[in-house]
């Protein structure tokens, strides 16, 4: 079965979405990520969507859910690399992803995760 790979780098999980996802693939990713967060006790999840040329309400909902689930499991999620056209479309669609943390690119996202993962 087709799956989106989840990479582990230190305490963080990295997901790069590069395909035009159909809904089932998005659902599988959502389940896989929850499993991996639980199994690895990761401190943070970084989702890179810089290669995505479209985010509709379904993918938007998946991102929101992943962010919410990970928060309950004491993990930070950062969404990085959203393209300008995608951002404008999402806002027009009425999907503002409240509560989801964002960063311009993977490097900034990693820094954000590192800072928030540092012991208080």
């Amino acid at each position: 079965m087709e799956r989106i790979p989840i990479l582990q780098i230190g305490e963080f999980l990295l997901v790069t979405i590069q395909v035009d996802m159909h809904d089932q693939l998005a659902m599988t990713l959502q389940d896989d990520l929850s499993e991996r967060i639980s199994a690895t006790s990761a401190k943070g999840v970084l989702i890179d969507i810089s290669a995505l040329d479209m985010v509709d309400s379904f993918i938007g909902r998946m991102i929101g859910t992943i962010s919410g689930v990970s928060r309950i499991m004491d993990t930070q999620t950062v969404l990085v690399g959203m393209q300008p056209a995608v951002a404008i479309t999402l806002v027009e669609l009425g999907l503002t992803l409240p509560g989801v943390r964002t960063a311009l690119n993977a490097e900034r996202g990693m820094r954000l995760l590192n800072n928030s993962a540092a012991p208080q």
């Binding site: 959203m82 300008p84 951002a87 404008i88 027009e92 503002t96 964002t102 311009l104």
Partner: peptide, 12 residues
């Protein structure tokens, strides 16, 4: 507001 939201979605 829309502009501000879109900028936030991009991570700025």
């Amino acid at each position: 507001l829309k502009t501000v939201t879109a900028i936030r979605l991009m991570g700025a």
